[in-house]
Design a protein around this nucleic acid. Structure first.
Lengths: 169, 169
DNA sequence: ACTTAGACAGTCTATTTTAGACTATGACCG
DNA sequence: CGGTCATAGTCTAAAATAGACTGTCTAAGT
């Protein structure tokens, strides 16, 4: 439990996922991210190995290490982590969606929108279809928060499909 | 012109802005970012001091330094930078919008959406109003690409206002 | 029994980016 | 002349990214 660290969004992603799983290895986390929140909050898989170590060193997580075989590390929430997560969840934020859209950046600097549009429409349609599929299959059993963020993703993708379609000529 | 560097989106932001300005100091760039693309592609102002140096060292930009006073550095596009920018603009991308939304992340992990919604509606309404104001005042004279990305921002903000309003109860 | 392909699981490094404190210069006002 | 505000720039530690690289286990085919 060395000197304190700053808790970043990445930290809360780890804390939140570990809580949801009860106990998880970095590899589990990686799969959880890929299947859900990775769609709207991307991070490097290497982070899912280093961040839990940071959080363990400072008492937010507890680690249990396999003695044989791959000596995997299994993490669970420590009381301190639980508390930190609760507090973070309770605190509303006025921070806005931050977006990074390479296609839009190119347009801004004068790239030809028609040339961009075809690929973008297709890519966004694909994402939209994927989300709608998840919603159709699993929508009803999803935890409320997960479903809500999925809905947000669907709305956002629809917006982009509309936007780019308009410029596809 | 030392060993090559990787050109990142940040590099193209600098190249693009320098081209638009003809010649610019980091401080000019900082103001340009704040007034326009900073809304949809955030970056640290310190980057606008270090990135042009990187680009100058590798021949993408040319630097002219004031001899007296503040010894400001003025940058303009070198032929190599011009070429790189052209190529980047011409190349379409299938990369999707990447978004980072703290409020949504909290919701995902079970935060109370009603508690989040009030602040979010207000913040997004504010942003939307700001964009619409710019569009109303300057819309007609804006370069096409700039106007288009502004339109995209407006659509996105409307989507978010609608989403959060629905949950504001 | 042996091998090998593919899924599973994790590590590493260099570079970039972020957060944000800190410093300095010039211009104008009383 | 001194203060204050806008202008302009620097610095550092910590965190994140890109992506190559290395192992381990299982199961199917030979």
């Amino acid at each position: 439990m060395s000197s304190e660290i700053r808790l970043t969004p990445t930290s809360f992603v780890v804390l939140g996922l570990v809580e949801a799983a009860g106990e998880a290895t970095p590899y589990d986390l990686k799969n959880m991210v890929a299947a859900s929140l990775g769609n709207f909050w991307s991070l490097q898989h290497a982070q899912l190995y280093s961040e839990p170590q940071r959080l363990t060193a400072t008492g937010y997580l507890a680690e249990r290490r396999e003695t044989g075989g791959r000596r995997r590390r299994h993490y669970r929430l420590a009381a301190k982590g639980e508390r930190a997560l609760r507090e973070w969840l309770a605190e509303p934020t006025a921070e806005l969606t931050e977006m990074r859209d390479l296609a839009l950046l190119k347009i801004f600097f004068g790239a030809n929108p028609v040339a961009m549009a075809a690929e973008q429409v297709e890519a966004h349609r694909g994402k939209l279809a994927e989300y709608e599929e998840i919603m159709k299959r699993a929508g009803a059993d999803l935890p409320a928060g997960v479903r809500l963020s999925l809905e947000a993703g669907i709305l956002a993708e629809r917006t982009w499909v509309r936007f780019w379609s308009r410029h596809a000529e």
